[in-house]
Computed example of a mutant assay.
Amino acid sequence: MPSPCDPQHAPAGDVGAALMMIDSRLRSIYDEKDEIDPEQQKLIDQYAASLDPEGIDDLLDGACTLIYMYMRWLRMAYEDHDKDPVEYVIPSLVATMRVMPRSFPPEVIPTMVGLVVAAGTGLSPNLWRKQYGYWTEEELTPLEATTFLLADHINRLTEDHDFATRLITEALCRADKG
C-alpha cells in the first residue's frame, strides 16, 4: 500500500533558494569567519523579506527536499559499506543538536530527527511533517540548521567542502535537461 508520505507526492519547493542559504552557511563556517559575508547576508535577508506566504512554503519545501536528497545520497553511500545510514547519521546529528541549544531548543529535536529518519527511510520529510500541522516559528531555524548539518556531514565524509552543494546543483541541472 502506497504511503501518503511517498516522495512522488511531495512538492519540491524552491530548492535553489534553500541551497543558496545552506551554501552561504557552509562557506562561512569553512572560511573560519563564523559569519556570512555581509553582502551575501544582505541578499539573503532581502530575499527572505520579499517572500509571501507561498514563497515561504516553497522555501520550507525546498529545505525538506534537500534533506531528502542528502539522506538519499547518505543512504546509498552507507549501504555501499553495508551500514545503516540512520544508525550512523542520527547519533552524531542529535549530539550536535544538543550542544546547540540556541539553534535547537530541546523540544524541536524530535521533529528534526523525525525529518531525517523519514528521509532516511525513503519518505518525504515535508509530507511526514505536514501530518502534524503547519510549521511553527520555533522550527524554522532548526530546519535550516538540520539541512546544514546534513550537508556538512556529507562534506566531511567526502573531504570536499563543496560536495553537498555540487551534488544538488548537478541534480538540478540534470532535472532541467530531462
Rank of each mutant, 00 (worst) to 15 (best):
D6E: 05
P7T: 00
Q8S: 01
H9W: 07
H9V: 01
P11T: 07
A12L: 13
A12E: 08
A12R: 11
G13N: 07
M21A: 13
M21S: 10
S24Q: 03
S24F: 02
I29K: 08
Y30I: 10
D31F: 07
D31Y: 05
E32A: 11
E32R: 07
E32T: 09
K33H: 14
K33N: 15
D34F: 15
D34N: 14
D34Q: 13
D34T: 10
E35Q: 13
D37K: 03
E39R: 08
Q40A: 05
K42Y: 04
L43I: 03
I44Q: 02
D45I: 01
Q46P: 00
A48S: 07
A49E: 09
A49N: 07
S50I: 01
L51I: 07
L51P: 03
D52M: 11
D52W: 05
D52I: 00
P53D: 12
E54S: 14
G55A: 10
G55L: 10
I56E: 04
I56N: 01
D57I: 00
D57C: 04
D58E: 15
D58P: 01
G62Q: 09
G62K: 03
G62Y: 05
G62P: 11
T65V: 01
W73G: 02
W73C: 00
L74M: 14
L74C: 13
M76A: 12
E79W: 07
D80T: 09
D80M: 14
H81W: 06
D82N: 06
P85C: 15
E87A: 13
E87R: 12
S92Q: 15
S92A: 13
V94H: 05
V94A: 10
A95G: 06
M97P: 09
R98C: 14
R98M: 15
V99P: 00
M100G: 02
R102Y: 08
R102L: 15
S103H: 12
F104L: 12
F104G: 06
P106W: 14
P106C: 06
V108R: 08
V113E: 15
V113M: 13
L115H: 08
V116D: 02
V117H: 04
A118D: 03
A119I: 10
A119C: 11
G120L: 07
G120K: 07
T121K: 15
T121D: 06
S124C: 03
S124Y: 01
P125A: 05
N126C: 11
L127D: 00
Q131P: 01
Q131R: 15
G133I: 07
Y134C: 05
Y134A: 15
